[in-house]
Nucleic acid binder design. Structure first.
Length: 454
RNA sequence: GUGGUUGUAGCUCAGUAGGUUAGAGCGCUAGAUUGUGGUUCUAGAGGUCGCCGGUUCGAAACCGGUCUUCCACCCCA
């Protein structure tokens, strides 16, 4: 049998895990610096917790878990005969793998509302699963690193999340990231102005593609969705939106003056932009982008997306404010805002830009050659002492040819090898070989420690 | 879900207008070197050519299906 793993999943080698942990640790440190606390939720939830939260497309991409036992027994004969998957699925599957971390978090907040101190700032770094077709930077199992705040409507949270993005990417050495910012209220306002409020979703999805398919493509798609030519004319200025953030906001103000919601959105963005300008960013750039829509339909306020133009890979993070996420689970009037880091994509970007230089694979500093049982026992005494001192050291476990043992040390890039044979044992000293220079020294334990520490 | 693409040794890939025994480089094992790795030289092991079926005297090659890889769309991190 040929060993394989399912489509869209990956194994991670020691080097890869080390590099991934470096990203995890960096993000985690920043999250905690900003006052977030960790939680974890199960990898699978009840289907009804997840289904219907991500739109029809999302439902299709949720991995369903088959009921245990004789799961077909209770299903109606008629239903089975009809071969209708959509209607049969709920009968044979009651659990599903989590699709993101935000919905399980909303469930968590509602379920534990009595124990939570609001405003609740939590972070979560766990895998999620999507039955998508894999392609570049898209997998069926991948990690998300989310930070959310629930229980505060303050726009300072938006400001903080921009700072947080900047901080994380700066620490990772990924500079000049572009933090795109928009507001769902502005999109609603625009739809209102053009009299296509019922087509908000179609409108935003089409607008989102502007940089990909161009003005003409977007126009055609909007026309195709039943948005009138006149309406499109009204928003044409959006297609060639230029200037700095404040200039863009001025233009938007004019465009949206007749929409209360749109105006509110502009004011929100103004607050964020002005304060970020006062506080300053280390290496990222905040950019208003009215074409930024994001697919999720639960965002109600600010929308974020982080991009880098150094690597063509799509967004490496995103998020936004959702005023009513917990409402679905019965807890009203709790506003939330959150952001997410796409760990796997960040990994690919750092790899491509060669930004993992500082990451070193954990490995022994010193390995002892095995010359036989007696010598091995003697070496283990020393290794015990060295390990107690925090020096990573190891005994080659088998008494095999010296060449093979040396080759092992070489392949693992272990900097020092100690040879202890009969001669050394009798004289109570060590032959220490520096694998880099090839230099060998006969020394006692103190000298050995001093040499490998230098 | 739609369209395209890929699969030959552990890895990266050659190969054939269908014809004895399927190749290379790297890696692996052994030796040159019995207490010395990285270089070099020599030898060796390793493949039902993704899987199933069809066409054919004959298929790794042609055809169909299926799985897989990668890519675009949809959607999205």
């Amino acid at each position: 049998m040929k060993p394989t793993i399912p489509k869209g999943t990956r194994d991670f080698s020691p080097t890869e895990v080390t590099k991934r942990n470096y990203i995890f640790d960096t993000i985690k440190t920043v999250f905690e610096t900003f006052g977030f606390q960790p939680i974890e939720t199960p990898s699978f939830e009840n289907s009804n917790t997840l289904m219907g939260k991500y739109g029809d497309e999302g439902d299709r991409l949720i991995f369903k878990i088959l009921n245990s036992g004789d799961y077909l027994k209770k299903v109606d004969d008629k239903l089975l005969k009809d071969k209708n998957s959509v209607r049969t699925t709920p009968k044979i599957s009651e659990k599903a793998l989590r699709y993101d971390l935000t919905v399980p978090f909303a469930r968590y907040v509602v379920q534990h509302q009595n124990d939570i101190v609001f405003p609740f700032k939590r972070y979560q770094m766990q895998p999620v699963w999507r039955a998508d077709r894999p392609q570049k930077g898209r997998f069926r199992e991948f990690y998300q690193c989310d930070a959310d705040v629930v229980g505060s409507k303050s726009l300072w949270q938006e400001v903080e999340f921009v700072q947080l993005y900047d901080e994380v990417f700066t620490k990772l050495g990924l500079t000049e990231t572009i933090i795109k910012l928009n507001n769902r209220k502005i999109l609603s306002g625009i739809a209102e102005i053009i009299g296509a409020k019922d087509k908000l979703l179609d409108f935003t999805v089409a607008l989102d593609k502007l940089d990909k398919i161009g003005i003409e493509g977007v126009t055609n798609e909007m026309l195709g969705k039943g948005i009138s030519q006149e309406a499109i004319e009204k928003v044409r200025p959006l297609f060639n939106f230029t200037g700095d953030n404040l200039e863009k906001l001025e233009q938007l103000k004019d465009l949206l003056s007749a929409s209360e919601e749109g105006t509110q959105g502009v004011e929100d963005l103004e607050f964020i932009v002005e304060n970020i300008e006062k506080l300053g960013l280390s290496s990222a750039r905040l950019e208003i982008d009215v074409t930024l829509a994001r697919g999720l339909n639960y965002y109600t306020g600010a929308i974020f997306e982080v991009q880098t133009d150094k690597v063509a890979i799509g967004s490496i993070g995103g998020g936004g404010r959702y005023d009513d996420l917990t409402g679905i689970f019965g807890l009203k009037n709790i506003s939330g805002i959150g952001i997410s880091f796409g760990l796997d994509r960040i990994y690919m970007v750092l790899e491509e830009l060669n930004l993992f230089k500082r990451v070193v694979l954990p490995k022994p500093t010193l390995v002892f050659i095995n010359f036989g049982e007696k010598e091995a026992g003697y070496c283990m005494q020393t290794i015990k002492k060295l390990r107690e001192m925090g020096i990573k050291s190891d005994l080659y476990p088998d008494n095999v040819k010296l060449k093979k043992q040396m080759n092992y040390a070489n392949r693992r890039e272990i900097p020092f090898v100690a040879l202890v044979g009969e001669q050394e044992m009798q004289e109570n000293n060590y032959t220490l070989k520096n694998m880099h220079t090839g230099e060998q020294t006969l020394c006692n334990l103190d000298d050995l420690i001093r040499l490998i520490k230098s």
